[in-house]
Design a protein around this nucleic acid. Structure first.
Lengths: 116, 116
DNA sequence: TAATTATATATTTATATAGTTATATAGTCA
DNA sequence: TGACTATATAACTATATAAATATATAATTA
């Protein structure tokens, strides 16, 4: 086996699906919603109360997240509960957060600043 | 220490930065560019030859990727080479790819199909 | 059934951005 | 310097979508 790094074979079609995933994660309000769902399911009303936005807007983003397969919907009587359906979301976010932290840390170093 | 999962404290401002990262990764053509850069740096001309698009369009996306801190730019004489500056990109893509694979696999199972 | 509550959808407006075309910039070499 | 090559930018068009507002749907309860 060669030791030279060769790129995995990913088709443009596959990359379109991956891009779609990232697109679902590319809006701050959707990340805030996912973040709120971290500890368990919440109703639309609860989410709307925590996130400063209108109920229709929240519903729209929830639908988008559901279509992306990131959250699950459960209806109980009159109220609808949403929950994280793909925990991978948190792994990804953590990686990105760490990467950003490093970036800022490096920048702070370059400026002679000290981060706590 | 409690064993109950509690969500990490991430500010809305931090989530905006994270969302920005994801946005840079939310276009198929940019993922294709990053994918091509997997094995090492490439000139704009080379990238343009491999990816079916116009040179100005490629340049624009490269600039965006550079602003996002995902690629680095190196000029040598007349030609400009771009390379991956944050390998985290590949970790993230792999996670998403695996997640998608699982999803499709589950769907195929549900349909009674057999994936190779 | 009517009133109430919870959620979803339709419509509109404003904004962002992908891609194209034309052109500018900047380096190389005769 | 002038011609040539490589890359970047500007201006434009077309499209996507976030948010707001109004309204619809559907479940609950009186």
């Amino acid at each position: 086996m060669s030791e030279i790094a060769t790129k995995p074979n990913i088709s443009p079609e596959a990359l379109e699906l991956v891009a779609e995933r990232f697109k679902a994660l590319s809006e701050p309000i959707r990340l805030r919603i996912l973040h709120q769902l971290h500890d368990g399911e919440m109703s639309v009303t609860e989410i709307t109360q925590v996130i400063e936005s209108s109920q229709p807007n929240i519903s729209k983003h929830l639908k988008l997240l559901q279509d992306a397969g990131l959250v699950a919907r459960r209806q109980e009587g009159n109220t609808v509960y949403y929950s994280i359906s793909d925990k991978v979301v948190f792994d990804i976010c953590e990686i990105v957060c760490n990467s950003l932290r490093e970036k800022f840390s490096a920048k702070a170093d370059a400026l002679g600043l000290k981060l706590k």
